[in-house]
């Protein structure tokens, strides 16, 4: 573990909690893409199947359980409890255009042609594009609630910090995982436009609205 990964995991956990809390407190999922949340639930489910096969540390196991349970709770709130507030018209990204190519790529490019490893690879590739329905929805509605922008900032920051974690681990441990690094780069690049708007608008107290 290193400082970058520590802060990154904290930022990721914060994002997940911020979103769950926002939906629960406001009893509304307006402006939230249910499709992205379903993709994240799939990402965690396919990535953390090793909960059943290997134990790394109490931290590792507990964080995985927290991520999985919070993501399913979020999906439940969006599609069941507060489904009346779900804005399906603006959450119209065709996720099959993400899942199918990502699935194919995971079968073609992976570290080991074993089921758990292919699922892990699928999860890594899927996570890099899972936020697209949410970003697409914001571009369609033309705005985002401030709490949603904080959620997105923490979510984007987490994988950006993982990039530094991988630099650290390469330098100090000689460890690197090309699949995770390339996917992490793609994932972080997809947030760049949002990061710019977040820093130039939200941090100045303005509301995030498009076109800028």
């Amino acid at each position: 573990m290193n400082i970058f990964r520590g802060i990154a995991d904290f930022s990721h956990l914060a994002a997940i909690i911020i979103l769950l809390h926002k939906i629960w407190k406001s009893r509304s999922c307006a402006g939230i893409s249910g499709k992205s949340q379903i993709l994240f639930a799939i990402v965690f489910t396919t990535r953390y199947l090793d909960l059943l096969t290997s134990f790394i540390s109490l931290y590792n196991t507990s964080m995985k359980v927290i991520y999985i349970s919070c993501s399913y709770a979020t999906v439940y709130l969006i599609y069941m409890k507060f489904r009346a507030t779900y804005d399906g018209n603006h959450d119209s990204f065709r996720v099959e255009f993400l899942v199918v190519p990502v699935g194919g790529l995971a079968v073609l490019i992976n570290h080991d042609f074993a089921l758990l490893e292919i699922l892990w690879t699928f999860s890594i590739y899927l996570e890099s594009v899972a936020i697209l329905p949410q970003l697409f929805m914001i571009s369609k509605t033309g705005e985002a609630e401030t709490i949603t922008t904080h959620y997105l900032f923490c979510l984007g920051l987490y994988r950006a910090l993982y990039l530094f974690n991988w630099i650290w681990r390469f330098y100090f441990e000689g460890f690197f995982d090309m699949i995770a690094i390339v996917a992490g780069l793609v994932q972080t690049v997809l947030y760049c436009d949002f990061f710019y708007l977040y820093v130039t608008k939200v941090l100045k107290g303005k509301k995030l609205s498009l076109p800028a």
Binding site: M63, H111, D112, E117, A180
Partner: peptide, 10 residues
């Protein structure tokens, strides 16, 4: 290459 890959990151 039946590498048993242990992914230690979240």
């Amino acid at each position: 290459k039946a590498k048993l890959l242990l992914h230690d990151e979240l």
